[in-house]
Nucleic acid binder design. Structure first.
Lengths: 172, 172
DNA sequence: CGCAATTCAATTGCGCACAACTTAATCGCG
DNA sequence: CGCGATTAAGTTGTGCGCAATTGAATTGCG
């Protein structure tokens, strides 16, 4: 039903005049998170199909993209590029290693660090992956400049959200 | 569908004379999937913080939103709204039931179907969730109109991708 | 120098996403 | 009516995301 008039929170909404009420915001919130969730999973579905004959999952493909572009990297750097921690990367990299696509070696100059490098097979896979982007971009049905704009908007939101998290987490 | 003849961003498309080559597409592909992935996880992070004191995860919140808005629903319908199958929903709904927020009952007129309904506690949680959307929208740093535009763009892409998947999966 | 703090990777545990399969109920065609 | 096809939910197994913890190596400060 309609919301009982909630005690407004001046901390959250100092200027209510130009904003819709809670019910409208709840609806928009639902739409935004639904849409983003759906889009993320829709991309995942397309990648799953495109990557199937490469034997890669979507996150594994992201790691391979980083290695193809940047060359050998320690786990730490890969995690920074992809915003993933070792809890996610360690088992993922083990699977890539088991598939013969990468090597993992303790760095001689810092034994804490593990350097991930491409095997010949891993490098060769790049050629076979060459058609993936074109097929993906075609599947979106959007022209390149719109996708670029979408990317920019997403990056902007991501930056704002990442900035907001510590503030939200810090208080209470 | 018609190819863009001018790149809006020379940083991304250094070759204005023709369709971008595979290397450029690979780069754009990387950016798009990185950005979408990052945005999706950034939203997840904010929701995680905002939902912490409600005791809900992000997907559980999505289910509660559907129930708050539509009332009692069979599992099937919830899955349609959220694009989730029973493999995901069954354990999730069990956890919501264990938390005392929903009931699950076999439908009398169709014993295959399970109707999910809100408990008093589940309905009451709606009030406590009232401030979540506002705080989330504020965290994005974008005005409502831009978020609405973003949502529309995401929905458009999702539709296109979902349409493309069967074709991609069918051949090759 | 010595020891505490920090850093990096790995591990553990939990929840979600999805494919493949199972079980049970319903539908519908002949 | 009967039986195969379909449908709904649940189960199993794999992989990802993340928090929390562990263990080993390095750093830095007194």
């Amino acid at each position: 039903m309609t919301e009982p008039t909630e005690p407004s929170d001046p901390r959250d909404l100092p200027d209510p005049s130009d904003l819709p009420d809670d019910a409208d915001l709840l609806r928009l919130d639902r739409q935004i998170c639904f849409s983003l969730n759906a889009a993320s999973r829709a991309f995942g579905g397309v990648y799953r199909v495109l990557l199937k004959d490469l034997g890669l999952t979507y996150p594994q493909y992201l790691v391979m993209l980083v290695l193809w572009e940047r060359g050998d990297l320690p786990v730490k750097r890969i995690g920074e590029y992809l915003r993933l921690d070792s809890g996610t990367l360690s088992p993922l990299l083990k699977r890539l290693e088991a598939a013969g696509l990468v090597r993992r070696e303790r760095s001689p100059e810092d034994e804490r660090s593990v350097t991930v490098s491409l095997t010949d097979e891993g490098s060769a896979l790049r050629e076979r992956a060459g058609r993936v982007p074109r097929r993906l971009l075609a599947a979106t049905g959007l022209p390149v400049e719109e996708l670029t704009a979408l990317r920019a908007l997403l990056d902007q939101v991501t930056l704002a959200l990442d900035t907001a998290v510590p503030e939200l987490a810090a208080k209470d």
